[in-house]
Design a protein around this nucleic acid. Structure first.
Lengths: 175, 175
DNA sequence: AAATAAAGTGAGTAATTACTTGCAAAAATA
DNA sequence: TATTTTTGCAAGTAATTACTCACTTTATTT
């Protein structure tokens, strides 16, 4: 991984997350990265290849955040940590861009990659089971669906109060 | 509203909802509508004007669906009807496209129009209040957030089981 | 040091883009 | 019926697009 290669990936992440895939030209990426446009195609073959590289880089980062949840043994803490994932994301601008890109791409390419969240869903399901919930699997699914809703608001609704929402959910789930 | 004008709007709705705004060319819209490309600009000034016209048409349709909720007096029925809004949407392909477009555009243009849901939120809040919930306003907000999550899954997740999710929520809210 | 490979450039290309314009047909109005 | 307005088309246009190619520079290997 050369220095310029990384610069391209960073510029692409920012622009893709900000303006979407098809609205971001390779020319603008090259300019932002301080690189000739041809270099993008040398390293990533084509625009889609660049997107895939950015997406893969993001998945690695996201997996790190998941590990903290999956290896948690205290059931209440599992739920709490899932709910507070959002707060964790804001704290790092690059992480936030990765998440935003994930959702943006979902809507642009129309494919929901459900198995990405599977380990978290499983951990949640187990946690709800231990907490005595009647339908732990459905509870886990529902919480992740709610999480998608929260993400939608967080990235798109200007005056969305994330803390308030998370607090309320903590209260509802008693964690 | 001429016949061709309507054809343009219908073609634009389908293509925008399917492929997004910036990825849909005016040429393709014209071809699908069976119309010369120039006519689009005659009637709608530019591509954005066409989008706005489509969006406005959609809002009218959506308002109809909302009316049924807002004028409902039985609190349990209000909650039930909000939860079953999704089911109602599938039944009509055009309605589904309008909703899909709403979300697509949100992510493409990055603006969440919250006041659009305000009457529903207010009705929900009142319903939760009547049902004795401790924080009716927050409950209303949370349900609409969850609704966004459900919409995300409904439109993007291939094997998403809408009925199962709605049934579970009906159970949780005891409606 | 010589040879090979990889990284990087920038000008060029064909296709697509949103949008314009001049003109004809149809509809509405007088 | 005559005139004006609206609706419609086809052939443009300038800008932008993703991508290529011939070439130079830098790094790695022999």
């Amino acid at each position: 991984m050369t220095d310029k290669q990384l610069k391209i990936l960073q510029a692409a992440l920012e622009l893709f997350a900000q303006n979407g895939f098809s609205s971001t030209s390779t020319g603008k990426i090259a300019k932002k990265a301080g690189v000739s446009e041809g270099l993008i195609f040398r390293h990533f073959k084509n625009k889609e290849g660049l997107l895939e590289a950015v997406l893969m880089l993001g998945e690695e980062k996201i997996k790190t955040l998941f590990a903290d949840i999956v290896f948690e043994t205290e059931p209440k803490q599992v739920v709490k940590k899932v709910l507070e994932l959002g707060l964790k994301i804001i704290s790092n601008e690059e992480d936030a861009n990765f998440w935003k890109l994930q959702y943006k791409i979902k809507w642009e390419i129309e494919k929901y990659n459900e198995h990405k969240m599977e380990p978290v869903e499983h951990a949640l399901s187990q946690a709800f089971s231990n907490l005595g919930y009647e339908s732990p699997k459905l509870e886990a699914k529902l919480l992740l669906i709610t999480f998608d809703g929260i993400a939608t608001r967080f990235f798109l609704q200007e005056n969305f109060d994330l803390n308030k929402t998370v607090d309320f959910l903590n209260l509802k789930y008693k964690v």
